[in-house]
Design a protein around this nucleic acid. Structure first.
Lengths: 145, 145
DNA sequence: GTAATCCCTACTAATCCGATAGGATTAATA
DNA sequence: TATTAATCCTATCGGATTAGTAGGGATTAC
């Protein structure tokens, strides 16, 4: 399950990407428009800033803005920051690897075998989606039947 | 993240599939071999039985056995019972659909758009894996480099 | 009858998640 | 300079979920 944190974070990034580049976007603006609790969103944008996706401007007329072009913001990177590992089990995670305590031989494990496939197919999708893809409006039409 | 319940459940099913078909497999046998807490495994096998994957025999020399051929046990079905929805957000779930409370228009939602793709690629993997694939020993070799 | 096994319900400790509180800091502007 | 509006930061909290345990009941081979 995707956490609300990640979901809100993605929505916020999309919102910022769509907004004019002239002035920074405020938390309260996103919060109202996307129906995200203000304080919660605040903490999410803080992590996104600390991990280098967003820049911020303090004080009156302050807000957040993208530090990179939307097309250069990969979903793999965003998801790893907000949600953590993409793999469903630590023993197949590329960035957050951990050995199972119950497994003797990882390569003989049936769960491992299956979850490697799931991981790879998920990675394939996430690597081929950037913030630009998320924030483009028309691209959704070929999915809706 | 895959829950331990699901992980243990998959391992147990694999174990049973690999075991001889003559006599039922006991909880304690699986528990020892796979390093799964006995009582926890008991509750997992109970759900697998109640959902029609396993049959059981009570009393001495009792245990669990598969009700179908391994090749007819799809990972999609097992995962949905043990883990719940395969989709990462309820609003793109086929079997556990729920509307988001924060989304006004689902089809305009960037998260929705992305998660449909993730769901489909995951489903594609899970639909193409049966218990027979998990329990075959040699098939892993082409993955390990 | 006894031992081994599954069946069932309830409980618990720990962790995580979603959200909030409250103030500190910074900057525009009147 | 005072005011206002924004981000920054740390701490906290209740509820839900997870992982696992307890304890006894029912069933069956021997």
């Amino acid at each position: 399950m995707l956490s609300k944190k990640t979901k809100y974070g993605l929505k916020a990034l999309t919102y910022i990407a769509r907004a004019s580049k002239e002035c920074p976007v405020q938390i309260s603006q996103i919060s109202k428009s996307e129906h995200i609790p203000h304080k919660f969103l605040e903490s999410i944008l803080l992590t996104l800033r600390k991990s280098g996706f967003l820049g911020s401007k303090k004080g009156k007329l302050g807000g957040y803005y993208l530090l990179k072009e939307p097309k250069d913001i990969l979903m793999t990177d965003v998801l790893r920051i907000l949600e953590g590992p993409i793999a469903m089990v630590p023993c197949v995670s590329l960035n957050f690897y951990e050995k199972c305590d119950d497994c003797v031989d990882e390569h003989a494990c049936s769960v491992n075998k299956l979850m490697i496939q799931v991981r790879d197919s998920t990675l394939n999708v996430l690597r081929n989606n950037t913030l630009a893809d998320l924030s483009s409006v028309e691209a959704n039409d070929n999915i809706v039947k």
